[in-house]
């Protein structure tokens, strides 16, 4: 009989498999983007980033992302608060509606908004009279960005707040805290991680949103082009280096968001040693 061969523990195999998939799906594409972007030197990369159309696309993307983030935080916290701390008629419907943007294809969202606010719409005359151009203009881009990112903050808060219940808020009220104090000193600290997580998800999605924005934007260079749209345009013009350069830029912005998140986590953590001892 042969001596028993050393047992290869199955998890080595699993870890190896994970790395292979990880490399194929994540690392290689990222490397290709970076290599392509710098294939003609850093100067060409930089040139692609600072041409006026690119700069305007950066501005518009940042604007849409920040406004969507603010809206999502305000709406998400309010919705989660309502849903988890109160009972009311239509609660189930509201919770279902919050998830709607997740299940609708972004391109459909774009079409819906075009129909609703575009020239075929019954509101169109009213909007024109009041000089409100929504479709093929910045308001349309803001609206669809908010729509597609709406659930992120609310979703990550609702489950947590339902689990935490209302007892801490009740305790705070019994101790004399008013509504604002309860929110600021009790509720917010308890949800800060979920809020941060939801905000990061919302930001990442808002920066990268293509489908819905593409439909409502009208692709007016220097006016209604966001970064993803700008990349598509460059790509369609066979300007590969510039397309990849802007992609790297978008990638860097995403990384920055992740770094910011880490930084927040570090600074919001408890520091018992710094607290004065009783």
């Amino acid at each position: 009989m042969k001596a028993a061969s050393p047992i290869i523990k199955p998890y080595y195999f699993l870890i190896a498999l994970a790395w292979v998939v990880f490399a194929l799906v994540l690392i290689c594409p990222l490397l290709v983007v970076v290599i392509e972007a710098f294939s003609q030197g850093i100067k060409v990369f930089w040139q692609a980033c600072i041409e006026p159309e690119a700069l305007s696309a950066i501005k518009l993307t940042l604007l849409a992302t920040i406004i969507a983030l603010i809206m999502n935080v305000i709406f998400g916290v309010m919705a989660a608060w309502c849903v988890s701390k109160y009972e009311f008629i239509g609660k189930t419907l509201l919770v279902t509606l919050i998830d709607l943007p997740f299940s609708i294809s972004p391109i459909v969202v774009g079409l819906i908004y075009t129909l609703l606010y575009g020239s075929q719409s019954i509101f169109y005359n009213f909007l024109i009279e009041h000089h409100l151009q929504v479709i093929y203009a910045i308001p349309g881009i803001l609206l669809v960005t908010i729509f597609v990112t709406l659930p992120f903050v609310a979703r990550s808060l609702i489950a947590l707040m339902q689990e935490q219940g209302t007892q801490e808020e009740e305790a705070a009220r019994l101790l004399g805290a008013n509504g604002w104090q309860i929110f600021w000193h009790v509720t917010l600290p308890n949800i800060k991680w979920a809020l941060l997580h939801g905000s990061v998800m919302s930001t990442a999605r808002a920066m990268g949103e293509f489908g819905a924005v593409s439909v409502v934007s009208g692709h007016i260079q220097g006016l209604t082009n966001t970064l993803p749209l700008h990349i598509e345009m460059l790509y369609n013009e066979y300007n590969m280096v510039a397309a990849f350069s802007i992609s790297v830029l978008l990638l860097l912005m995403a990384m920055l968001v992740l770094v910011l998140r880490k930084w927040c986590e570090k600074h919001l953590e408890r520091h018992p040693q710094q607290k004065e001892s009783a």
Binding site: Q167, E168, E170, A171, H185, R270, P272, A278
Partner: peptide, 23 residues
């Protein structure tokens, strides 16, 4: 409360001081 309902992100001392600070 039966399940204490202490403020989980505050130290014991801050928990006790909470009501006085909210005035």
């Amino acid at each position: 409360f039966q399940h204490y309902a202490l403020f989980r992100h505050m130290t014991v001392l801050d928990n006790v001081a909470f009501g006085l600070r909210m005035k």
